[in-house]
């Protein structure tokens, strides 16, 4: 009798788990949420002083500049690849997209990366987790991930995107000023933190629940105060109005650090704890590194219409 009872319980448990899994798979197909945020928007950041880093050092960016309101999305990056490949700006070798880079000056320093002139990897299309697809002639963004930040892109790939359109990757100073504004806040939205503000390690957002921590990017601008199927977000915009300057995926910045040539990433990601989401939090890797939690946004000089404003 006892044995039979155990079998029933075991069967029921397996059934429930299977149903849960099936629900999860279905959820993956259907998980599309409209944030209402325009990924093509640029934000004007006025010249001025600000407080840099954890210890609030006085710093200044003495020119106006513009920066993207959100990360570059998969759809945007796929669109760029179509144009860049057609024009010969990048080339494909097997499944790898490569582009030319003139190299970094080598100082012979201990632990220094040697970045020589040549063709460097931008993206490897057969890597797992990538949302950019290619049919031999055309690139497109995987369905459901069009407005998610592009990932698995190296620093070379990010820089190439910016260069193609005549833009640039933001410098660390530009990035930090855009994230912090003029006060000493720890996060782009202020000093308080809870999981409604950003996509970070165990933020329990619907995408994390559906795809798992490492694959659960959220659409750009997801944390804007809206409630999505019961999941309430808070508005995480920086004082200038940039979304996701903390969390979702790391953002490559443009600076080449002399003596090491690591490239730095800012903003924390879906895989980091909240302390790495603080404005001064940083990560670094070689410029050819790409990961599931690394993307970028671009900066540019002020365009004419903004100058007029």
């Amino acid at each position: 009798m006892k044995q039979r009872k155990s079998i029933y319980i075991l069967t029921a448990t397996i059934l429930i788990m299977t149903l849960g899994l099936a629900f999860k798979v279905n959820a993956q197909d259907e998980l599309q949420m409209d944030t209402g945020v325009n990924p093509g928007e640029w934000i004007l950041i006025p010249a001025g002083e600000f407080y840099k880093g954890q210890h609030n050092h006085e710093a200044e960016v003495d020119y106006d500049y513009e920066i993207m309101a959100t990360h570059v999305t998969n759809a945007q990056y796929a669109g760029y690849l179509n144009k860049a490949l057609d024009s010969g700006f990048v080339k494909m070798i097997g499944d790898t997209i490569k582009g030319y880079y003139p190299g970094d000056e080598f100082d012979g320093y201990k632990h220094e990366f040697k970045i020589e002139e040549g063709y460097w990897t931008h993206m490897v299309l057969d890597e797992k987790g990538i949302h950019i697809k290619f049919d031999g002639t055309k690139f497109w963004a995987q369905k459901g991930f069009e407005d998610h930040p592009v990932i698995m892109v190296s620093w070379f790939g990010a820089k190439s995107y910016a260069d193609f359109y005549g833009w640039r990757l933001p410098t660390e100073l530009e990035w930090e000023k855009a994230a912090r504004g003029s006060d000493t806040r720890a996060y782009p939205w202020g000093n308080n933190f809870d999981e409604s503000y950003a996509n970070y390690y165990k933020s329990f957002d619907p995408f994390e629940e559906a795809y798992g921590i490492m694959r659960g990017t959220t659409p750009v601008g997801f944390y804007n105060g809206k409630t999505y199927s019961g999941f309430k977000t808070s508005d995480n915009r920086s004082p200038y109005g940039l979304y996701d300057m903390a969390g979702n995926v790391w953002q490559w910045v443009g600076d080449d650090k002399p003596f090491v040539h690591y490239r730095y990433m800012r903003g924390g990601s879906l895989a980091t704890y909240s302390q790495h989401l603080r404005i001064w939090g940083e990560n670094s890797a070689g410029p050819d590194y790409y990961g599931l939690d690394v993307g970028f946004r671009c900066a540019r000089d002020v365009q004419d219409e903004n100058k007029k404003k």
Binding site: H276, N283, A285, Y289, G291
Partner: peptide
């Protein structure tokens, strides 16, 4: 293996 492995990984 610092330069060969660990410094190739992301800092974190």
């Amino acid at each position: 293996k610092l330069d060969e492995i660990f410094r190739v990984w992301p800092f974190l």
